[in-house]
Amino acid sequence: MITSRPDKRREKRLIALLLLLLVVLCAANLWFGSVSIPTSAVWDILCGGEGEKEVWRFIVLESRLPQMVAALLSGAALAVAGLLLQTAFNNPLAGPSILGIDTGASLGVALVMLFCGGSLGLTESTTLTGFTAIIAGAFAGSIIVLGTILFFSTLVKNNIMLLIVGIMVGYITSSVISLLNYFATAEGVHSYTIWGMGNFSGVTGEQLPYFALSVSVGLAIAILLIKPLNALLLGDRYAANLGVNIKLTRNLLLIVTGLLTASTTAFCGPISFIGLAVPHIARLLLGTSNHNTLLPVTLLCGAVTTLLCNLICILPGESGILPINAITPVLGAPVIIYVIINQRKIQYFN
């Protein structure tokens, strides 16, 4: 007889803790910044008050709030994209940046930005058309790279070899971007370079709804795929035997990962390590590969991690904002190294 029941308390406590952290970090992202605004004033502005100074109101509502939401959404999107890739490729070391998917998105963005002139950079003045062009470019680029990797995955069965193929595809894409830069105008290169450093502050209040919409659609489809994702842990042939339509599921996974990676990359630049490291943090904290709980926890962990990174970026205060890609590897790389060193002890690796 199976008498004992699995312990669900750990899951519940973890989710409560992450939600608490999320709220605290959201608040911290609104409270801190390069301009010092008193706590009471921030609260007042958020509650719809006029605020003591018009400029404070502008900073909180038009700069800090969109930046906070952008960080939260990007983190959730990239972390979930990473988890989907790791399950789909049967490879715990897969991720949007390692497989060159965000480089693909970058290439799409570069093509649009550099060849439609510097005016199409993601600035405040970007028109809706320019914007759609950039997102479409990023989506096309990421889907093409994903499709290429997926094609290679049918030829190369070895996981490590497939990762190396992904890295090579990433290199080729990067060199195409370098060539594009070489031929582009100075303004184009400038706006591309600034974008390439990764920045959550680039998303304006008007852009935010579009960003939020595309990320929400991606995350919603990901949540609908939880059942087939669990079956895919057994591999394609077992999953097919459990009634999963492999082709449809793989195509949906491809589109969702492309959409999530492309929209974050288009709006905030290529952000490394979130997609690779956060699913591991979530698995280690949660102690299961079951997507029923792993997917929501990964989503929350992603949001918390990027909010933390963004907070670190704005900590220098008046001297300016650090690029996000200076922070994420410092947090992400040690996680991956820890996971690789301890892989024999970590259940989901075996």
Binding site: P6, T87, N90, P92, L233, L234, G235, R237, Y238, R283, G287, T288, S289, N290, I346, Q347, Y348, F349, N350
Partner: peptide
């Protein structure tokens, strides 16, 4: 087939 189920109970 090799599976990825080490992290499942």
């Amino acid at each position: 087939d090799k599976t990825q189920t080490g992290g499942l109970t």
